[in-house]
Computed example of a mutant assay.
Amino acid sequence: MLSTIVAFILLLGVLMFFHELGHYLAARRSGIEVEEFGVWGFPPRLVKLFTYDGTIFSINAIPLGAFVRMKGEDAADMSPGSFNAASAGARAFTLIAGPAMNLLLAVLFSVAGMMSGVPADVARPQVDAVPPGGVAAQVGVEPGDILLRAAGEPVYVAAATGDFLRLAELGEGDATGPSSGVEVIRKGTRITLAEAQDVTPQALLAETSYTPVLTTQITFVVEETPAAAAGLLPGDMVYAVNGERVTPERTLSDLVQEHLGETVTLTVLRGDEWMQVDVLARENPPPGQGAMGVGISGVVRLVSLPLGEAIWEGVAQITTYIYSVLALPVML
């Protein structure tokens, strides 16, 4: 309980500091004199930190925010440099600057969060074509190869778009592998292309055409179902159904639905082992079990977005949040 109270006071103090900093900077820019900037808390004053350009910076006794005291905040003072003597535009600018600073802070926090790590559905790229003479061809990448690592870095792409994604945190299995060269799965076997040295994931992906694969994993298996009888396990990653790859465009559910009432052959990756598993796709399964009796999900990793994309996503996230808040009264 005490830690929650302390955390609330600290967070409120930070938010209010930047809010009042916006007022302070806008006031000075508009020629309004600021008599005191309480960077922490409300009066009575505990400590006078320093005086800068006529403004006292202080720490105060009531730790519930911060404040800026401008000259002439009461309507009676119309002397030069007072708030009320400033133009209407300057006063509006000064008042708006506080909320605007909080908005900017929210965007910065959101962008920092996107860069430090955000959950994303990921996939492995399987090479469809290799142009002759390029880097991929020179290091020995072949059509059909599933790229795993390059220059010691795991190779993941966004399941939906195929864009390269850099992991913010290594998951199980991501930390193991060669520190140099290109590691691929070729015809079911992990191999490292010895001639590849410092080829980056981006360089490989930039010049090859590929399809995101291994996008779907089994999360649970219902007892006494075809999946349980076939030996499927949570964590199994489904690569193909009857030889057709599972992709964002052709999902596992789509492929299984086309063969209801039939036994389908799943190509499954379990750890480093490839398996062929025959499973009955039931036509009328019990509610909530699905045709085979499994739960599935995308493969989620914590990824770090590059600066440009992080800014775009951060602004979009805050904009969506603001819209949701503004729309709430209408929805009620």
Rank of each mutant, 00 (worst) to 15 (best):
G235K: 15
T189H: 08
P125K: 11
V199T: 06
R149K: 14
F109G: 02
A106G: 10
P178E: 05
Y156T: 05
V122G: 03
S180C: 14
A151T: 10
A106D: 01
F220M: 15
G181Y: 00
L147R: 07
V184Y: 06
A228M: 10
L204I: 11
G181C: 10
A206F: 13
P154Q: 05
E169R: 05
R190F: 11
V155P: 05
G144W: 04
V182E: 01
E169H: 10
P178M: 12
R149L: 11
L148S: 06
D163G: 09
Q126N: 07
V141G: 09
V107Y: 09
E153L: 15
L232P: 00
P143Q: 13
P99F: 12
P234L: 12
D163C: 03
A112H: 09
P119K: 13
A136I: 11
V184C: 00
A229W: 04
F220D: 05
D145C: 05
G113N: 14
L108Q: 08
D163V: 06
G134L: 12
E169Y: 04
S179Y: 09
A196N: 00
S179I: 10
Q197A: 15
A106F: 13
A228F: 14
A158G: 06
P234I: 15
P119V: 14
A120K: 15
V139Q: 02
V184F: 10
T161Y: 03
R190K: 10
S116D: 11
V122M: 04
G144C: 07
L193G: 12
I185Y: 00
A229C: 02
V111I: 15
A129R: 12
E172G: 07
T225H: 06
V135Y: 12
E142F: 10
A206W: 10
F164Y: 11
G181E: 00
N102H: 14
Q197L: 13
A230C: 13
L148R: 05
T219C: 07
P125E: 03
V199L: 14
L167Y: 06
E153F: 07
V127W: 04
V139W: 01
G162N: 01
I191T: 07
L148G: 07
A129C: 14
P132N: 15
A160R: 07
M115P: 01
D145T: 02
L214F: 06
L233Q: 12
T225N: 01
D121H: 13
V157E: 02
L214I: 15
L167A: 03
V141Q: 09
L204P: 00
A100W: 06
A206S: 11
L165D: 02
D145H: 04
P212M: 07
A151K: 04
N102Y: 12
R186T: 06
T200Y: 01
L204N: 02
D128A: 08
P212L: 15
A159S: 06
T211G: 08
V141D: 08
A230N: 00
R186F: 01
T225P: 03
M115H: 08
